[in-house]
Computed example of a mutant assay.
Amino acid sequence: MYRLIALDLDGTVLTSNVDILPSTVEAVAYARSKGVKVIVCTGRIVGEAAVFSKEIGASSLLISAGGAAISDVRNARNVKEWAMPWDIGARVVEAVQNRPVTVMIYVGDRLYLNPYSDEILCNTKRTEGFWASKVVLPDVAAAIREHRFPVSKVFARGDQKILAEALSEINQLPGIHITRSAENNFEVMPEGVNKGLALRELTHVMGISMDEVMAIGDSDNDSDMLKIVGMPVVMGNGDEAVKQLAKYVTDTNDNDGVAKAIYEFI
Rank of each mutant, 00 (worst) to 15 (best):
A6H: 03
L9G: 02
G11D: 13
N17C: 12
I20V: 15
L21R: 08
S23V: 00
A29M: 10
A29E: 02
K34T: 05
G35K: 06
V36H: 07
V36T: 06
K37E: 12
K37G: 15
I39K: 02
C41G: 02
A49I: 07
V51Q: 01
K54M: 06
G57M: 01
G57N: 02
A58G: 05
S59C: 02
S60I: 02
L62Y: 14
A68S: 08
V73G: 02
R74V: 07
W82E: 08
W82V: 13
A83R: 10
D87S: 12
D87Q: 13
I88H: 12
V93Q: 08
V93H: 04
P100C: 07
V101D: 05
T102H: 07
V107L: 13
G108L: 04
R110D: 06
C122M: 05
T127K: 10
E128T: 14
V136Q: 09
V140P: 03
R145A: 10
R145I: 12
R148D: 12
K153G: 11
V154Q: 13
F155L: 08
R157L: 08
Q160Y: 09
I162G: 06
E165Q: 15
E169P: 07
I170C: 14
Q172H: 07
L173N: 15
L173H: 14
P174K: 13
H177I: 04
N185G: 10
V188R: 09
M189V: 10
E191A: 15
N194C: 09
L197E: 13
L202H: 03
H204I: 03
H204F: 10
G217W: 02
S219R: 13
D220E: 15
S223E: 09
D224F: 09
K227Y: 08
K227N: 12
P232K: 08
G236K: 01
G236Q: 01
N237F: 00
E240Q: 13
E240G: 08
K243H: 09
Q244T: 11
Y248E: 00
Y248H: 01
N253A: 03
N255E: 03
N255R: 08
A259F: 08
K260M: 00
I262C: 00
